[in-house]
Every structure is written in C-alpha cells, then in structure tokens.
C-alpha cells in the first residue's frame, strides 16, 4: 500500500526531514506501507494542500495550519503574535487542551495530526532595527500571516502583500523597508544581503507558526493496526527531532546574518509586552470577532503556562 505526502519545501529543509523520518521508519517497520514524498510543491501548491487532504485525495502533508484559516477560522490562532513565547512553551501547547480543541476542528474536516511542531521567525529592517512597535511606524512592511498584518498595521506600518520569494528583490529596490517571516526563509532567500538589522527569535520571540504533519483521518483509520502503530512510532521519533532542530534553526539564522555583517537586535521583555498589548487590541480582537467560539479558544491558548 502507498501513501502520498505533499509539502512545499526543499529536501534540505527540517520539514522535509520530519516527513522523511516518518517515511523511513514506516518502511523499516516492514508493514506493507510505503510513503511517497512529493516535495517542493511538485504535486500541489502550498496553499492548495489542505482541501485535497480533507477530501482524501491527498494522504499526508506538512503544512502551516494557518494556511487553512479561511476554512477553519480557529486555525488562525496557530499564527498569532505573542501567543507562543519560545520553543519549550510551544511544546507544552502541543500537549494542552487548546491543541485538543484544535484537533477537534481538524476532525470536522477529516484531518488528524501525526507530528506537532512550531517554527519561529523574526524581523528584518532595511534601514534600522525592529524590536518594538514604534520602530515599524511608516515602514512598508511585508508580514507573514494575517494576524501579524493586523498587528503591524495597528503599529502604523504600511502593509504590502507579496510572497516570501519576492522579499529579496523588493528590499533591494526599496519597495520594502521591513519584513517578517520564518528564520529558514530569511536564510534560504538570502535576505541578509539586503538587511541592515535582524531581530531573530531568541529567548523571547513574537512569531511562531504551527506547522504539523497532517494526515487524512479516514485513510489512517483504514490502515491495519500494525501500519497505524508504525506510523505513530515514526511520528513520535520525528516530533522529537523537529523540536530539537527548530531550536537550532533560530540560532543558525542569527549566525548567518552576523557573518554577513548584519546588525543583530534582541527583543526585550518590555518590547514583547508592548507588542502583545497591541496584538490584544488588533489581531486578538479581530480573531474573536471573526470566530464563533474565538474567545474560548484564545483563553485556552493563553492559559498554557
């Protein structure tokens, strides 16, 4: 039997490694199950994976869950400013009642989680450092995710929407003054060549994105017990690897920027609190308005220590 797994990343990315571990473990278990990985959007485009997954036309995917926020507004909580403080906190969120509530939402779409994982990101400025809300005022900014756009607009930034592959060019020509995306994208798109200052995800970080390995639930339930066990065992191993590598990635990106001669800035606890206050007035508020049981879900997430 064969399962098809689709993702958008290159085969050197952590998220590919996560998929690969699961595939290799399942193959090693010799349970007549083969996972075929289609990377680099070779099967589906990044944002077009969730629908086929939920309809059983695709078996597995590694996906930023917020991409499907238009279908399940609750998913927007998985890319909410200041909700996750650091990677260990993220790991605790994965085991919380909040995550259980999200998994219930996924089950409505016939989707389940195999591997949990969060990745972090930061900010770059073309002319100066961005650590607190005042820094972003009046800058043309590209933000990763709806909630961040709302918060940054609230800080007085002007929002320009473009894909992360366009950031390099736009910063080079001066269309963009600042950008916010994941640590790995900053490195893979060589943004350090165009940035003056980088605010990486450190002990305190604002930008965390939940990017689990998902599977179609009915497909999983259709497998025999041995196959399910092999998948779950592989997933457990992959999840440990994911957390470990996610932590390393932020430091690695900082190192790359430092070597390229880019100034490195750190966000202080005060800066973080100021952003979070702003987020409460903007993105949190909007989220609660747009989502049926939004307040309840938000409280559940905030309750995780």
């Amino acid at each position: 039997e064969e399962l098809r797994l689709s993702h958008q990343w290159s085969n050197t990315d952590i998220r590919h490694e996560v998929a690969k571990i699961v595939a290799d473990e399942v193959a090693a278990a010799d349970v007549d199950l083969d996972i075929k990985i289609f990377g680099s959007q070779s099967l589906f485009k990044a944002r077009e994976q969730y629908t086929p997954l939920s309809r059983g036309q695709l078996d597995m995917t590694v996906l930023p869950l917020s991409y499907a926020g238009g279908q399940q507004p609750a998913y927007n909580l998985t890319l909410m400013p200041g909700l996750v403080k650091n990677h260990d906190h993220a790991a605790r969120l994965n085991e919380s009642p909040f995550m259980e509530a999200l998994e219930e939402k996924m089950a409505e779409d016939d989707v389940m989680v195999l591997v949990h994982g969060y990745l972090a990101g930061g900010f770059v400025g073309a002319d100066g450092c961005i650590t607190k809300p005042e820094d972003i005022k009046g800058l043309q900014t590209r933000a990763a995710g709806k909630a961040f756009e709302q918060m940054l607009a609230g800080a007085g930034a002007s929002i320009a929407s473009m894909s992360s592959s366009e950031i390099y060019n736009a910063m080079q020509t001066g269309v963009l003054d600042a950008a916010n995306t994941s640590s790995s994208s900053f490195v893979s798109y060589r943004i350090y060549e165009q940035a003056k200052c980088y605010t990486p995800a450190g002990d305190i970080a604002l930008w965390f994105m939940y990017q689990p390995l998902l599977m179609n639930k009915s497909t999983f339930e259709g497998l025999n017990e041995e196959q399910q066990a092999a998948l779950l065992a592989g997933a457990e191993k992959a999840q440990a690897h994911y957390l470990e590598e996610a932590k390393k990635e932020d430091a690695a990106s900082e190192e790359v920027f430092r070597e390229a001669g880019v100034e490195i800035a750190q966000m202080s606890q005060e800066d973080f609190d100021a952003w979070r206050e702003l987020a409460k007035e903007t993105s949190y508020k909007q989220f609660v308005e747009d989502t049926p049981d939004g307040q309840k879900l938000l409280d559940m997430a905030l309750a995780v220590e």
Partner: peptide, 18 residues
C-alpha cells in the same frame, strides 16, 4: 477516476499567481 475531481481546482490554482 476520483482524481478527475481535482482537475478544476488545479486549473484554478495554476492561475492563482500574481
């Protein structure tokens, strides 16, 4: 035959590019 279901979605998706 089920993969036919996907064709319009993919057609639309390929055009969904600024």
């Amino acid at each position: 035959a089920r993969s036919l279901e996907l064709m319009p979605e993919i057609l639309f998706g390929k055009l969904d590019n600024f």
